[in-house]
């Protein structure tokens, strides 16, 4: 987790186990993601996909194992699921998006002219020109997601963690947002995105991590999204035992 030495991978998980109340949501995950990779995280509901992203941004402590990020904290951007925003709060689109510059502005700094221009240019890039002064409560779901993408772009991160970025978004908006994501990929940023649309994963994501509380495979998309593996994923995700025994698979010492 120390400052980026470029030799380290963008993300390395080492026997990582995450969970709530000792019940693992992600079990013994080990993987290595290269800089500039575009990875889809796929798996049924409850497979631990969101949990993994939460842990990577530090919202959840590992139960066991560790992970290392190849970028400093302020170069990592996280897009949680849409539902976590209070849309009735009185704030306009420009102000919301401008907060993507938090690492330059901090809690007190004002926007200079160049930064204000950058915010407007980014709003234009996501197709929200002219809506700068609108309260966020008046945006449609797709427009709000565009605004969140704009904020994400201003964060200028090297590692982007996207949690279901295209969920409940119409086809046209999804096409635009996917195009934006592909330009970030072309700029050499590392992207991990949780997705449910397997067809889209096939089309745009070179790599894929299939998760069903444990990793069922990580590699080139075509070799991972196979019928037998997907079937296994569905079965694994459905088991939850209140009285599950203690796991002894990797009797490594507990992390502090």
């Amino acid at each position: 987790m120390n400052a980026a030495s470029l030799s380290a991978p963008a993300l390395r998980c080492d026997n990582l186990t995450l969970g709530y109340d000792r019940h693992p949501a992600v079990h013994h995950l080990s993987c290595e993601v290269d800089h500039g990779a575009l990875v889809a995280i796929v798996g049924p509901n409850g497979a631990g996909k969101s949990t993994l992203l939460k842990a990577l941004v530090g919202e959840l402590k590992p139960l066991q194992g560790a992970y290392a990020l190849g970028a400093p904290r302020e170069r990592i951007a996280y897009l949680p699921q849409l539902s976590e925003i209070d849309r009735s709060f009185p704030v306009n689109v420009f102000d919301m998006v401008a907060m993507g510059l938090w690492h330059q502005l901090g809690p007190l700094g004002g926007l200079n002219r160049g930064q204000a221009r950058r915010v407007r240019a980014t709003l234009a890039a996501v197709g929200l020109s002219g809506l700068e002064q609108r309260p966020i409560g008046t945006l449609s779901g797709g427009q709000l997601q565009r605004a969140r993408f704009a904020r994400l772009m201003l964060q200028d991160a090297r590692l982007l963690l996207l949690d279901e970025p295209f969920n409940a978004i119409d086809a046209r908006t999804t096409e635009d947002l996917v195009a934006l994501m592909l330009t970030w990929h072309a700029e050499g940023r590392t992207i991990l995105a949780v997705l449910h649309d397997l067809e889209r994963v096939h089309r745009h994501f070179p790599q894929c991590l299939l998760l069903a509380r444990e990793s069922l495979g990580f590699g080139p998309t075509a070799s991972i999204l196979t019928e037998p593996l997907l079937l296994r994923a569905r079965r694994l995700a459905e088991t939850f035992d209140d009285h599950a025994p203690v796991c002894h698979r990797h009797p490594a010492p507990e992390v502090a």
């Binding site: 941004v57 996280y78 949680p80 209070d86 704030v91 907060m99």
Partner: peptide, 18 residues
């Protein structure tokens, strides 16, 4: 003011940047 506004309408974002 700024962190409080963020904490009100998008706490997940505030946690991710600060």
């Amino acid at each position: 003011y700024r962190p409080l506004v963020l904490e009100c309408f998008d706490p997940a974002f505030l946690r991710s940047v600060s």
